[in-house]
């Protein structure tokens, strides 16, 4: 049986993980390679590394880092942040990344999704969508949630699927950082609108939130950052908790 995936997300700036992390047995918590390897060992099903560098130098450092991550990482990982072209993706996949996520660049140039799917296959193209619920509509934002667009979540997700995206990574800006649970209703609706897997992001605070996101939200995978980085939820505990709640989880 296909299992639900738990995906820690690591924000990387100029080659270093940025969120405050305190792990026993990890000499350098700012080292994305070591942290990724630790999560893999703990039973994470996939990893996401998001480059939030603001400079070209930072982005260059990230590309080099992907090679180091790939050398160490025994599970699949996705890289995102600042990907604009077939050439960018070619470089990252050749470095050893398994998937890439695109967000702002796809909104600006939707044909990019088609080009990437044709060249590399849909299975490695993740369409990341940041959306905010206001006045009854879920509207898409770009540039890390700073810039509004005229796109609506569900129609953009459907368009992304038609253009060849292999997965949707949906972050609810209303829920992100609240630790009050995932955007269950929106995830449920999204699951009716597309037939590609959905990764839920934004709002993880407790282990029961993960049960809800799979059982009620119908998500295929759940992504979280701070609850893992700050040690509030340990991945082995989370996985046994989910198993106890009858959710298919890799052992």
């Amino acid at each position: 049986m296909l299992t639900k995936r738990i995906i820690p997300c690591l924000d990387v700036k100029d080659g270093r993980t940025v969120k405050g992390i305190n792990f026993e047995g990890l000499r350098d918590a700012g080292d994305p390679v070591a942290l990724g390897a630790l999560y893999a060992k703990q039973g994470a099903d996939e990893l996401v590394f998001l480059d939030i560098s603001a400079t070209n130098e930072g982005r260059g450092t990230f590309a080099e880092l992907v090679i180091e991550i790939a050398a160490e990482c025994t599970i699949p990982f996705t890289v995102g942040g600042g990907i604009n072209s077939v050439k960018d993706v070619d470089r990252l996949l050749k470095a050893g990344a398994d998937k890439v996520s695109i967000n702002s660049s796809a909104v600006k140039n939707p044909d990019l999704i088609n080009e990437l799917a044709k060249e590399f296959g849909s299975q490695c193209i993740v369409l990341a969508i940041d959306a905010q619920h206001a006045n009854g509509d879920w509207m898409v934002y770009t540039h890390g949630g700073k810039k509004s667009t005229d796109k609506e979540l569900y129609s953009w997700a459907r368009e992304g699927e038609q253009r060849g995206a292999g997965e949707i990574l949906f972050t609810s800006m209303n829920h992100d950082g609240t630790k009050n649970g995932f955007a269950i209703a929106a995830l449920n609706e999204l699951g009716k609108q597309v037939t590609i897997p959905i990764i839920a992001s934004g709002g993880a605070g407790t282990m029961s939130h993960f049960v809800d996101v799979f059982k009620e939200g119908g998500a295929d995978a759940a992504l979280a950052a701070s609850v893992f980085h700050f040690g509030e939820i340990a991945i082995p505990d989370l996985k046994s908790y989910l198993r106890d709640n009858d959710i298919a989880i890799r052992n």
Binding site: L2, T3, G191, K192, I196, D220, A221
Partner: peptide, 11 residues
């Protein structure tokens, strides 16, 4: 509706 494609993940 239940089984998405691509088949993605650990099985």
């Amino acid at each position: 509706q239940i089984s998405k494609v691509p088949h993605t993940g650990w099985n």
